[in-house]
Simulated scan of single mutants.
Amino acid sequence: MVGTVMIIVAGHVQVAPEGREAYLRDCIAVVNAGRAADGCLDFAISPDLVDPGRINIHERWTARPELEAFRGSGPPPTQQDAMLAIAVEEFEVAEARQ
């Protein structure tokens, strides 16, 4: 990826442990839409293996305009209401190695 910038969105959200499975079910459409969006290289929302209230977020995008077009106004109110804490950041990567 020399000469281009990739955007990585990574982090986690906290939800009530008893509500995690429902939250993840509600995210299936978001994951499908993200993976189908222009500029999306990877999109995953998954349960943490050791924390029953943690949901891990990982996205890779070719450029900011595509990410912002997909993001729109953010998660629907039902998902926003379920989030107890959010720790998600964006990173601009100028170089990647395999």
Score class of each variant (00 low, 15 high):
S46C: 13
Q79P: 03
A82Q: 09
S46K: 10
F70G: 06
R71E: 11
D38E: 15
E21F: 01
G39H: 00
S73V: 08
I57L: 11
P76G: 08
G53W: 03
S46G: 11
F70D: 05
A36E: 04
D38Q: 15
D81C: 13
L24P: 00
H58C: 14
A22L: 13
N32S: 14
D26M: 10
P52W: 05
Y23T: 04
R60P: 07
T78H: 15
L67Q: 08
P65M: 05
N56W: 09
E21K: 03
R35D: 03
G34H: 02
G34I: 03
G53I: 02
G53T: 03
I45M: 13
F70H: 11
N32F: 10
V50T: 15
I28L: 12
T78C: 08
P76L: 08
I55E: 00
R25D: 13
I45L: 15
R71W: 14
R25E: 13
A63T: 06
Y23Q: 03
H58Q: 12
A37E: 06
G39V: 01
D38I: 12
V31L: 05
C40I: 01
V50R: 15
R64Y: 07
A37Y: 05
D51W: 02
V50A: 15
R54D: 07
L41R: 14
P65L: 05
L49H: 12
P47K: 02
C27K: 07
I28Y: 10
P76I: 09
S73D: 12
P77K: 05
R64L: 10
R60A: 14
A44N: 11
A63N: 10
F70P: 04
V50N: 15
A82P: 06
A69C: 09
G74I: 00
G74S: 00
R54G: 07
L49S: 15
A33N: 10
A69E: 11
A69P: 05
D26N: 10
S73E: 12
G74C: 00
P75V: 13
E68D: 14
P65H: 07
D26A: 14
A82W: 06
R35L: 09
T78G: 09
P65K: 06
E59K: 00
W61F: 05
V31K: 08
R64P: 00
D38M: 12
V31D: 03
I45A: 06
G72Q: 02
G72C: 01
N32H: 14
R64E: 07
P75L: 12
S73P: 01
T62P: 03
V30M: 08
V30K: 06
E21N: 08
E21W: 01
I45P: 06
A37C: 09
S46M: 13
D48K: 02
G74L: 01
G72D: 02
E21Q: 09
V31N: 03
V31Y: 02
V50D: 15
A82E: 08
A29V: 13
R64M: 13
A82M: 10
S73G: 10
P52F: 04
P77H: 04
G74K: 01
I57D: 07
A82T: 04
